[in-house]
Structure formats: C-alpha cells, structure tokens
C-alpha cells in the first residue's frame, strides 16, 4: 500500500458560538492514500461535504474546527497560516464542486480562470499560462480548445463546465483532488463521461481523489475504498468490493437496499430507511443511528461504538457487529 496523503483524525466541527455550539462532525477518521480514489457516502446532513470543506479549510464562517487534525502529507491543515493555505490550495490539493453552473465566475473568460492558479503557483507568464491552459482544456476533452479558451461560462454546457472545473483544479498537478458531488447536477451520460475523465486523470497523474456522493452507482464506478458517514461520524469503512458483497453496518445495508436497480420489479416500492437524518441540535445519544436501526440493542443508546477492524479491509462502528462482549463494553 502506498503512503497516506491525507489523514483526518478525530475531526470535530461545530456551528454557532462556544456556549450553544452544535457539533456537526463528531470525530471523523478518514485516510486517503497516494493515487487511490476514496468514496465518501451518506445522506444529506451526514457531514460528508463539511468534512471536505474542513479538509480544505473552506468552512463557512459560522462553523469552526473544535478538535482533531487534518494532515496533508506532514502539514497540519488545521493550524496552517493563511499564506500556507494559499500555497497549498490549487497547487497540491484542489477541489471541484457540485454545481458546475455556479462554480465558474460568469463574468470571467474560462481561460483566465484556469490560468489564474498556473500563474500564481507555477509563476508562468501570461503567454505560457495560456499555452498551458489550451493543453489543459485539450486534456480534459474539450474540443477546439483554442476557441473555447475565450468562452464565457454561459457559452458552455453543464458537462463542459465541469470539464473546465476539472481542468482548473488539475492545472497545477495537485496530489489530491476533492470532488464534492461532481456529477450530481449532470445527466447520466455526462456523469459517466466525467467519471471516466476523473479515473483517467487518477491513473495518469497518480492522483488521490476523494469523491463525495450519495450515489452508490458512482462509488461502484470509480472508488477503490468507501467510507460511509452518518451523523457526523464514519460508520463503515471498506474496500469497494467488500462493501457491496459483505455490507456490515445496518445503515450501509439500508442505503444499498434503497438504491434502485435496473432488475427490480416495476411496481415494487423502493425500501426506505424509516425516520430522517437527525438535526445536529438533537443528535441521539450513543450510536446516532439507533432510533432508525432495525438491529437496535440495549447498548446502542448509551455508548458510541468505535470503528473496529472486522476484516482485512473492512472496519465498522456498530454494537450489533462488535466482537467485543456487551458486558465488556
């Protein structure tokens, strides 16, 4: 296995002022290794986007990191100065967003937006940056890049804009790309193209990717490993094969069952997980999933389960799967 490039340890993020703050991330552990693609899955409100934003130190001003560490290579992102962050962002690690419609500045030519990180981080001249931008557009599969470089975002389709975003994020050849639901706003055929592009770039540049999604199809398509998040914690971590063949956490099982498949009977209702994601102000005690869990046990509402290694490439945080005896716990 290659060395870890990003290690998130016990990360806690809270909203609001100190005294009445609400914890949205309650100890997240995520490791991404060089050149691997990690999927992060969960419902809305599970904290997956917040984890990504915290890792980039892009949290909204109402939120703050209250504990834990985010190690990129050997630098702790949580204590890095603004200068240090500016050096890192877009250069060593970068991010693409859900809405390619709004993630590009509408009044700036796409070429200028791609050239900006090149000029800043690589110190290229305007001319060199332009040449590099054209290569970059070409490499993400934009036809006629010489002409497209001077387009404004509104002159491009959604899929093309996401390609431009990828070109911009990868312009300085970063080691890590965080993709926050990069295909959610696109239609299915374009989704597949964008995922293909990301996978090609991953191989070509030995790039580590964190892909945040609620779509198991995307995970199956691209991820090497998967983290399932619920209630601001990682509840299951597994290789992509193990997750689909040997799902352990009741929440992961519920999510997988709720995914529509092409073989299913037409009239059958899609199974759903009862209840809703708890709001961060009323997080249940113990395991956050216990009120909705079909395999609830007496321990579940009292103690928070930790991630336990249950197989070579699988860890799960669930009392119903714990090898430890309940009395011991």
């Amino acid at each position: 296995m290659s060395e870890p490039i990003l290690t998130i340890r016990d990360l806690k993020v809270a909203f609001g002022p100190e005294k009445v703050s609400m914890e949205a991330l309650r100890g997240v552990d995520i490791t991404v290794r060089r050149g691997e693609c990690l999927g992060v899955v969960g419902e809305s409100g599970s904290g997956k986007s917040l984890t990504a934003l915290a890792a980039m130190r892009l949290l909204p001003s109402a939120a703050r990191i209250t504990g834990g560490s985010v190690l990129f290579k050997d630098q702790d992102m949580t204590s890095l100065s603004r200068k240090g962050l500016e050096q890192l962002r877009g250069n060593e690690m970068s991010m693409i967003f859900q809405e390619p419609m709004t993630a590009l500045n509408p009044v700036m030519r796409v070429g200028d937006q791609i050239a900006a990180p090149l000029r800043k981080h690589k110190g290229l001249s305007a001319k060199a940056a332009r040449a590099r931008t054209i290569e970059q557009l070409d490499s993400v599969g934009i036809p006629d890049p010489h002409r497209r470089i001077d387009n404004f975002p509104h002159e491009m389709s959604g899929g093309m804009r996401q390609r431009v975003m990828i070109a911009m994020a990868l312009a300085c050849e970063p080691k890590l790309l965080i993709a926050d639901e990069p295909t959610t706003a696109l239609d299915v055929t374009i989704q597949a193209q964008i995922l293909d592009l990301l996978r090609a770039k991953q191989k070509e540049m030995d790039l580590a990717i964190i892909i945040i999604t609620h779509d198991f199809g995307v995970v199956a398509e691209i991820a090497d490993r998967v983290n399932v998040m619920y209630g601001g914690r990682v509840v299951e971590e597994a290789g992509v094969g193990a997750l689909f063949d040997h799902t352990l956490h009741p929440y992961s099982i519920g999510l997988l069952n709720a995914t529509p498949t092409i073989e299913m009977e037409q009239q059958r209702r899609l199974p759903a997980i009862g209840g809703a994601v708890p709001h961060i102000s009323e997080m249940p005690s113990g395991c956050a999933f216990h009120p909705r869990c079909p395999e609830r046990r007496p321990t579940c509402d009292r103690l928070v389960p930790n991630l336990e290694t249950v197989a070579l490439d699988q860890r799960v945080a669930c009392w119903a799967r714990s090898t430890a005896d309940e009395q011991v716990a």
Partner: peptide, 11 residues
C-alpha cells in the same frame, strides 16, 4: 460557488 472555487485554487 465560484468564490469558494477561487479560494480553493489558492487565490
């Protein structure tokens, strides 16, 4: 989002 994107690019 483009403001966040710009910051994420190190601007």
């Amino acid at each position: 989002a483009y403001v966040d994107a710009a910051i994420a690019m190190g601007r």
